[in-house]
Amino acid sequence: MSAETIQSRREWLLSDRPASRLQARLGRAYVSWRRFSANRLALVGMLIIIALLVVAAFADVLAPYSPTVGDLKNARLLAPSAAHWFGTDDLGRDIYSRIVYGARWTLYVVILVAIIAAPIGLLVGTVAGYAGGWTDTILMRVTDIFLAFPKLVLALAFVAALGPGIENAVLAIAITSWPPYARIARAETLTVRNSDYIKAVQLMGASPFRIVLRHIMPLCISSLIIRVTLDMAGIILTAAGLGFLGLGAQPPLPEWGAMIASGRRFILDQWWVAAAPGAAILIVSLGFNLLGDGLRDALDPRSGDQ
C-alpha cells in the first residue's frame, strides 16, 4: 500500500461528514484506537493478552509434552533445561506444557466470569438507577449485602456448598464480583437519567425498557468494560486462590493456582515448580491491568468529547 492510499484512508476515517453508518462507526473506532495506541504501556498489555489468546488457541502445537501424563520414573522434579524449559513437577510432568494448557483454563475462568457478572451488574445497576424509588432501594440493598462479604470468603462458602471444581469456582467468583458493576452502572445511570436527551426519548413515547436498553446501557458500557478489564487480574487471582486452597480446579487439570499449591511442598529445594505458574499469573494479571488502564484513556466518555 502506498503512502498516498494510507493517507486517503485516514482522511476517510477521520472525515467530519461521514457518508454512511459504517464510515461513522469506523471513524469513531479509529479515534478510540488512536487514543489507545498512543499509550505504549497499554499496547504492551494488549500484546500480553493477545499472546495469551494465541497460546491458549495453539496449546496443542506449542506444548511438547502432555499436560497431565508425566514420566514418573525418569523425570521427577527436574530443574529447567533444554528438554524441559521450566523443569518438571513431582509427577514428572513438563511444567512448560502445563502452563501452556493452563492458559486455556485461565481464559475460561476470566471470560466466563466476565460474561456472567458484567451483564448482571449492568442490568441491576441501570434498572435501579433509572427506576428509582422502591426498586432502587431493594436492588441496591441486595447489592450492599453482597458487597459486605469479603469476596474470597463468600466464594469459598459458595464452592463449599456447590462442591469443588472449576465450574463452581467460576460461578462463585461471578456471584461475588457483580456488585461493583451494579454500583458503577447505577452511578452512570443517575448522571444521565435526567438529561435532556433521555427526556427527549421519553417524549418520543419510548418505553422505560427501551430507554434503559438502547439509550442508557450504551453509555454505561465503556466504564464497565474498563472496570471488568481491570478486575480480570483480580478474577485470575481469586481463581488461583481457590485453586490453591483446593476448591477450584481439581487435579490433574493444569490450572495455574492449583499448580502453585502443589509446588508449595518443594518450594525451598525445587523453586521452579511454584515459580513458573506464579510468574505466568503475574504477567497475565499485569497485562490485563495495563490493558484496562489504556482502555480507560480510550473509552472514558469524560475524556474528550467523544
Binding site: A24, D196, K199, R210, R214
Partner: peptide
C-alpha cells in the same frame, strides 16, 4: 405534541449519530 429543548448541547445523545437519533422515534412508533 413534540418539544424542542433549550440546550442543544444536552438534548442530543452523545453516542448516537443524527441518523440514529432520527430513526428512534420512527422505530418507537
Amino acid at each position: 405534541v413534540q418539544m424542542v429543548f433549550q440546550d442543544p448541547y444536552g438534548s442530543l445523545h452523545p453516542r448516537q449519530t443524527v441518523d440514529r437519533l432520527l430513526q428512534e422515534p420512527l422505530a418507537i412508533h
